[in-house]
Measured scan of single mutants.
Amino acid sequence: MMITLRKLPLAVAVAAGVMSAQAMAVDFHGYARSGIGWTGSGGEQQCFQTTGAQSKYRLGNECETYAELKLGQEVWKEGDKSFYFDTNVAYSVAQQNDWEATDPAFREANVQGKNLIEWLPGSTIWAGKRFYQRHDVHMIDFYYWDISGPGAGLENIDVGFGKLSLAATRSSEAGGSSSFASNNIYDYTNETANDVFDVRLAQMEINPGGTLELGVDYGRANLRDNYRLVDGASKDGWLFTAEHTQSVLKGFNKFVVQYATDSMTSQGKGLSQGSGVAFDNEKFAYNINNNGHMLRILDHGAISMGDNWDMMYVGMYQDINWDNDNGTKWWTVGIRPMYKWTPIMSTVMEIGYDNVESQRTGDKNNQYKITLAQQWQAGDSIWSRPAIRVFATYAKWDEKWGYDYTGNADNNANFGKAVPADFNGGSFGRGDSDEWTFGAQMEIWW
C-alpha cells in the first residue's frame, strides 16, 4: 500500500505532463481588424464602393470589426500518417458601440487525414466545412476562386508533373424550389442545395520560377423529389480557371483567366447560384435568372523594390453578360506602395480606380480612391502583421446608374434591375460627389 501511495504523485505528475503537452499542441490562428473612423462631412466613417463592383480598395476603407478565430489540433499521428481537426468561428459588427450583439458564423469544422492511402503518398483526405484552397486579391479583399463550404475531397495527389485535387462542396439558396400545392400555385419556401464539383491540377512547373494551375468547377441545383425551380432559374454552370504564378522581385505575380457559364457567373468564384427565389410569386422572380457567361482577366501581385520599397498591385477586367441584360462590365486598377522608414514603421499609400458599365443601360459608374496611412507593423514586409495605422482617405465618384429596389417585386416591374440614375424622376446610384474620411485601425493575422 505504501508503495502504491508513493507512486501516486509520480503517476499524477506524468498524467499532468501528458495533458499539458496535449494542451500546448493546440494551434491558434486567425485574422482580425477593428478601429475607429470619422467622415469629413460629419458622423462615423463611411466606406466607398462603386455600385456594381464586387469589391473595394480596402486600405483606410473598412468600416467594421471583423474576426476569424481558428482552433486546430493534430489529434493523432503514427509515422507519417496523421489526423488534424480544424475549426473557425467568424463574426462581424459595425464597430459603433462597446456591446454589439452578433450571431457568430461557424465557418470551418473539418478533419484532414494525411498519408492515409498507401499508394497515394503525400495526399490528404478531408471532410467537413472548410476554407478550400481559396485564391484572392488581398488589397481589394476579392476572392476570385473560392468554393468554401461543407464538403469532402482528396487533395495533393502527386501525379509527377503536378498535384491533383478533387472536391465537392455545397452552397444552399433560400426559397430555391417549390412543391405543387393546388390550382397551379407554387410556394417557393424550400431551400435548394447547390452542389459544386471541383478538379484542380496545381504546382506544374512550366518555366523557371513559374507554376501553372488549372481548374474546372461544375455547379448544379440539386432538387428534392417532386420539387421544381422557378421558370428561367439557372440550373447549372461551369467555371474554368487558369492561373500562372511567377516568382519575381522577392515576391510574386499571378496572371489569371477565368470563364464561367450560367449558374457560375453571378459570384464568379466557383459557387453555383441562380435557383434562389426571393418572392413566393414566380411571376416576379426574374431577378434570379443569371443565365449567360462571364470572362475575367486578372493580374495581381506583391513585389519588393529595394530595401525600403514594397508594393502590391492589381489590374482586372470582368465581363458578365446575362441573357436578362442585367450584367456588368467591370474593370479596376490599383497600387499600394509602402516605404519603410524603419523595420517596424512605414508609410503606405493606396490608389485605386473602378469603372462599372451596366449591360442594360450602357451607362458607367466610376470612382477614384486614395489613402495615405502611417503604419507600425511587426516586420519590414508589406505582409507583416499585426499593424496599427492612422489613415486619411479621399474618394470621388460619378455614378450614372443604379439598381432599382424601390417598393417590392409585386408593385415594381423593374425591381432588382439596373436603371439610369434619374429613372422615373428618382435617384439611383450615388450620383456625382466626393468625400474624405480619417481614422485609426489595427489588422492582424497569425
Rank of each mutant, 00 (worst) to 15 (best):
M345K: 15
K129R: 01
G426D: 04
G315D: 00
G72V: 03
Q374R: 00
A278P: 01
Y218N: 02
E350K: 00
P343Q: 02
I117F: 08
A32E: 06
H29P: 07
S34F: 06
F28V: 10
V137A: 10
W376R: 01
R228S: 10
Y227F: 06
A302V: 02
G431D: 07
V248I: 03
Y143C: 14
N291D: 08
D195E: 12
V14L: 07
I382L: 14
A94T: 05
V257I: 04
T361S: 04
K81E: 02
D404N: 00
S171A: 12
D146Y: 12
L239I: 12
V159G: 15
F284I: 01
E213D: 06
F438L: 11
I125V: 10
N365T: 13
R385L: 10
N190K: 01
T328I: 03
M349K: 03
N222K: 04
A25G: 06
T261I: 02
I140N: 11
A260T: 01
R107C: 09
G210S: 02
Q203R: 10
K114N: 12
E399K: 05
F240S: 01
G72D: 10
D231A: 15
V314L: 06
L229Q: 04
N207T: 10
D195Y: 13
H300D: 07
G407V: 08
F106I: 09
Y368F: 11
V230D: 12
R224L: 06
F48S: 14
W445L: 15
F240L: 05
V256D: 00
A90V: 08
Y353D: 12
V196I: 08
L212I: 09
V199E: 09
T39K: 07
S182R: 10
T51N: 11
M294L: 10
R228P: 01
A409T: 02
V256I: 02
D187Y: 15
N289I: 09
N115H: 14
G40V: 09
R385S: 14
G43A: 00
W401C: 05
S171Y: 13
S272L: 00
W99S: 13
G175D: 00
S381I: 07
Q377E: 13
T39A: 04
F161I: 11
D27N: 02
A21S: 09
W309L: 07
G219C: 02
G149S: 08
F28S: 04
G160D: 12
G175V: 12
P150S: 15
F255I: 10
Q246R: 00
I3L: 05
K396M: 01
F391C: 00
G379S: 09
Y91F: 15
T124N: 09
D187N: 10
D236N: 11
W238L: 05
G315S: 00
S179F: 14
G42V: 05
N97Y: 02
A221G: 10
G274V: 05
E350G: 00
S358Y: 11
G72S: 02
I3F: 11
G274C: 11
R33G: 02
E443K: 13
L372F: 06
W331R: 03
G407C: 06
N97T: 15
H29Y: 03
D354V: 02
D398E: 11
R220L: 10
F391L: 06
F83Y: 12
Q318K: 04
A413T: 09
